[in-house]
């Protein structure tokens, strides 16, 4: 599903975010990307949804080379990829329903289709009773669940999560992880960037470790 060949990303000559990264992630995999702050996790994810272009190397997603993807094609790539962030990135002035519907409307889906899918997605994350609330009226965990619903409502092939539990306490983190596992069970490839090693202990999966932009570890789980 995701293939990287000798990918390097430099922001300037002395600032290398990702260095000579070669790896493959299969369809339906669940992978942790770990490493200290500044290891290149976020840059790695950003290159996958074409927010950054690699300086060198090739990236293939679903057999399509996105290394030199042009502006007008980027939206169509992103429709296959759901992204979840540490700071949720919700629109505070919109309701829960509108925040999730936004992703479908942006893809030009019909209205009846939008309302049906939004309801399903919110039910999936257990927030179907909060449709008309605004994000700020909800807890951090609930906000992250809305963000996950928004990412999943479009049935993405790949789900990227950048420190999704960074702002959440342990119990809520477990709830969120449960949602990722369920999405993965339905066939979505999940990449989860985190520096929280306890997640891997609870939910053992493949772990890719980066350090100063370089691949320093690629461990398969002991048991799945």
């Amino acid at each position: 599903m995701i293939q990287l060949y000798n990918v390097t990303k430099k922001y300037s000559s002395d600032s290398v975010a990702v260095k000579d990264l070669t790896l493959q992630i299969g369809k339906g995999d669940f992978v942790y990307i770990t490493g200290a702050s500044g290891a290149g996790k976020t840059t790695f994810l950003r290159m996958l949804y074409a927010a950054e272009k690699p300086t060198r190397g090739q990236i293939l997603i679903n057999k399509k080379n996105i290394t030199r993807i042009r502006g007008p094609q980027i939206p169509y790539l992103r429709r296959q990829i759901g992204v979840v962030f540490q700071d949720f990135k919700l629109l505070q002035s919109r309701t829960v329903y509108e925040n999730v519907a936004f992703a479908l409307e942006a893809q030009g889906k019909k209205r009846y289709e939008v309302s049906k899918k939004v309801y399903q997605a919110l039910k999936e994350v257990g927030l179907e009773h909060r449709l008309q609330r605004r994000p700020l009226e909800l807890s951090g965990g609930e906000q992250q669940r809305i963000a996950i619903a928004r990412a999943l409502v479009v049935d993405p092939l790949i789900l990227l999560a950048d420190e999704p539990s960074g702002n959440l306490d342990q119990d809520v983190t477990l709830e969120i992880m449960e949602l990722f596992k369920r999405a993965n069970a339905r066939g979505t490839t999940v990449l989860l960037a985190t520096h929280d090693h306890s997640l891997n202990q609870r939910f053992p999966r493949r772990v890719i470790t980066l350090d100063q932009g370089k691949l320093v570890g690629d461990q398969q789980p002991l048991q799945v």
């Binding site: 939206p75 992103r78 942006a106 928004r150 479009v154």
Partner: peptide, 16 residues
């Protein structure tokens, strides 16, 4: 700008 960023993120075209 948040709205614009999120729109681009969820795959909205420039025209949209």
């Amino acid at each position: 700008r948040d709205e614009l960023e999120i729109m681009a993120l969820v795959g909205a075209t420039m025209r949209f």
